[in-house]
Simulated scan of single mutants.
Amino acid sequence: MTRAVLSIGSNVGDSYAHLHSVTSALGDRVVAVSSVYSSVPWGGVEQQDFLNAIVVADDDRRGPYDWLEVALELEKAADRVRVERWGPRSLDVDIITCADISSNDPQLLLPHPRAHQRAFVLVPWLEVDPEATLEVAGEARPVGEWIESLSEEERAGVHRTEMTLHTPNSTS
């Protein structure tokens, strides 16, 4: 199977519904999904806070570019408009890792080149996979260590909410 770790986020419109659209569309391919977190925007653009989550999905028929196509289709279905880098968005679906594949293709950088700097990615990822590791510049470290390397300000900007994203595999 090709396991992908997807970071999903939204701060435009019904953000929870946008996040839920991802788990709903992926259906039984969802292996795990984190709680929903609230996070301060990253990148310096003035905007409201985001809702974020991590989705781990498996599909033996999908490779990295297939997952990229899925991500772009999900964003399009949520009326994602790309106006300003790091600006507000209805839905952002980033591929953080895909199996153990590395890619320097500008269309699909794997692992995600800034994931290790973003608490809104690392904190929910650690929740669903405490044994996860992330390789950056040839150095593989546990996700928990990457979190510890972040500034207190970066970590303090991420808060677990009471919201959850139910999937077809959920019992609740």
Rank of each mutant, 00 (worst) to 15 (best):
D66F: 04
D28H: 15
S149A: 15
S103K: 10
E46P: 07
V45L: 07
R3H: 03
D14P: 07
A156V: 11
V45D: 05
L19M: 09
A78M: 10
V70E: 02
G63V: 02
H116Y: 10
G44K: 03
E139G: 08
K76C: 14
W42Q: 10
S170R: 09
S21A: 14
S24F: 12
P168N: 01
D129E: 13
A4T: 03
N52K: 05
V40C: 12
V30T: 00
R29A: 13
L6Q: 04
R118H: 08
R29S: 12
D94G: 11
W86V: 05
L134H: 00
D60L: 05
G43T: 06
P124S: 05
R85D: 11
L109T: 15
V22L: 00
A115T: 09
L19C: 09
V12P: 00
L110W: 05
S38A: 11
L109M: 15
E84Q: 14
H166I: 12
L134A: 04
R160W: 03
V121S: 06
T171M: 12
D79P: 11
V12K: 05
N11E: 04
S34M: 07
D58V: 09
T133G: 14
T161V: 05
R82P: 09
L68K: 08
S38M: 03
T2Y: 08
S10K: 02
E153W: 11
I95D: 03
S149W: 03
V121G: 07
V45E: 06
L19W: 07
P124R: 02
E75G: 00
V56M: 14
A25T: 07
A99M: 01
A53V: 04
C98M: 01
S35L: 05
T23N: 03
V56I: 15
W67S: 02
Y37D: 10
K76L: 15
E148I: 10
T97L: 03
R29C: 10
V33M: 03
P106F: 03
A53Q: 05
A77V: 11
L108W: 06
E139H: 13
A57R: 00
S151F: 02
A57T: 06
Y65A: 13
P168R: 07
R62T: 04
S39N: 02
E73W: 13
V55P: 00
Y37K: 05
L108N: 00
A99I: 02
A17G: 10
R114W: 08
Q47D: 03
D129Y: 01
A71F: 09
T2R: 10
P130E: 08
A77L: 10
D129H: 01
L150W: 01
Q107K: 15
V158S: 09
A32I: 12
S15R: 08
H20Y: 13
L72H: 15
A140I: 14
S170Q: 09
R89Y: 02
L126S: 14
E135N: 11
V56G: 01
W42P: 01
Q107Y: 12
P113H: 11
C98P: 06
T161G: 02
I8V: 15
M163R: 14
R3I: 13
S39F: 06
S151N: 09
S151H: 05
P113F: 07
V55I: 09
S15K: 04
A78H: 03
G9I: 06
R62H: 13
P111S: 09
M1K: 11
Y37C: 08
A156W: 09
D28L: 14
